[in-house]
Simulated assay, not measured.
Amino acid sequence: MLLSDLYKTALLTAFSLTMVLASCTTSKYAATEKIYKDKAKGFAEIIGTVPPTGQLYDSLNATNQQWIGSVNFGIRKPNFVVIHHTAQDSLAQTVKTFFSTKAGTSAHYVVSRDGKVVHMVNDYLRANHAGISKWGKDTDLNSSSIGIELDNNGLTDPWPDAQINSLLKLLATLKKTYNIPTANFIGHADIAPKRKNDPKNFPWKKLADKGFGYWYDDVLKNPPADFNTEMALKYIGYDTSNLPAAITAFKIHFIQSDITPTLTPVDILVLYNVYTKY
């Protein structure tokens, strides 16, 4: 078998999981799952085309470029998990939204209030959940993360134990499967502080206790006199181009009882403690 044939075979094999999952249709969602299957097949064909099309670095001198497929490659793997609340009233409403091409949004998983987990986009594919966002130097979180939507209206809904327990099991699987660092379990507000505030009033400490994200210690030490709060926020990952928005996002995650865009003395103690963990 030629090297190029090996390359194409390996790529198509790598996408077989997507195709298997997409083929498991039910009568209720057969139409939308057919669209999913067709799109996945189209992506597999694009990636499996040897040599790749439309990837010339020098269109004026195409003969100066050669394709030799390497045998050492793999599918891109997610490095972050971004948690959202749906701001909708039910699991069914969110699923319907993710079927809408007009809405254009999606997530890899939706976790309902009763703990049911709905998987909607293959983990290796790019879902449209993060939008315009930034965390550290990463400006395309859609491409580097798994998005999880929690069925919660963002206003008065509590966080039921069944929902959080299912989320913890899901996060444990994702962390182990993709070797996601502890620091890389974050919220939508963290990566989009100018636009988003979700998930609100969320039990981040429960997640941190299980190794999904960081939380501050019970005993907080005073920072040094020259502690720079803006630099600390930036070091953690926050986009500080709009500092009040970054402060608010930090407080949505770690303070919650007060999300005004100013740091109180207690907030600074918390910030310093969290900063030292990164």
Rank of each mutant, 00 (worst) to 15 (best):
A245L: 03
L271E: 07
K96L: 12
A208C: 12
F43D: 08
W159S: 12
T105S: 14
N64M: 08
I146G: 00
N64Q: 11
V266W: 15
S257N: 09
N184L: 03
E230I: 15
A232T: 02
D138G: 01
Y36D: 11
D267H: 03
L21D: 12
Y235Q: 14
V274F: 01
M231H: 09
D161T: 15
I252C: 00
T262L: 08
P193G: 05
H84Q: 04
G42Y: 12
F43H: 05
P181K: 14
A225T: 08
K200M: 06
A103W: 04
T240L: 08
D123E: 15
Y7A: 04
T182M: 13
N179H: 11
D239Q: 09
E33H: 09
D218S: 14
N228E: 04
L207E: 09
T262Q: 08
G74E: 07
A245Q: 11
L125M: 11
Y36F: 10
Q93A: 15
P51F: 00
G154A: 10
P244Q: 02
H85T: 02
D198F: 00
K8W: 05
C24F: 13
A232Q: 02
F250K: 01
A10N: 14
L56I: 06
P203F: 10
V50F: 03
A249K: 04
S27M: 08
Q256C: 01
K210M: 10
L233I: 14
D58P: 05
I83T: 03
I83V: 10
Q88V: 01
G115Y: 04
L167I: 02
D140N: 13
M1E: 09
Y235L: 10
I180L: 09
P244C: 06
D5F: 00
H129Q: 13
K234R: 10
A31V: 07
V117S: 06
K277R: 01
I75N: 05
A225H: 04
T105D: 13
A183M: 07
K194C: 08
A10S: 11
I247P: 01
Y36S: 06
L220R: 09
K251W: 05
T240D: 10
R76I: 12
M231Q: 12
A189S: 13
G213E: 09
W67L: 10
K96H: 10
A103C: 08
S241M: 01
W215K: 03
I47N: 04
V71L: 14
V20I: 12
L60H: 13
W204G: 03
I186E: 08
S16E: 14
I68M: 06
V50E: 10
P265Q: 12
V118Q: 04
N61F: 12
L170A: 03
A245R: 11
T53H: 01
S241H: 08
T260K: 09
V219R: 10
K39Q: 15
K206R: 15
P78M: 03
Y57S: 01
A10R: 12
E230L: 12
K96G: 07
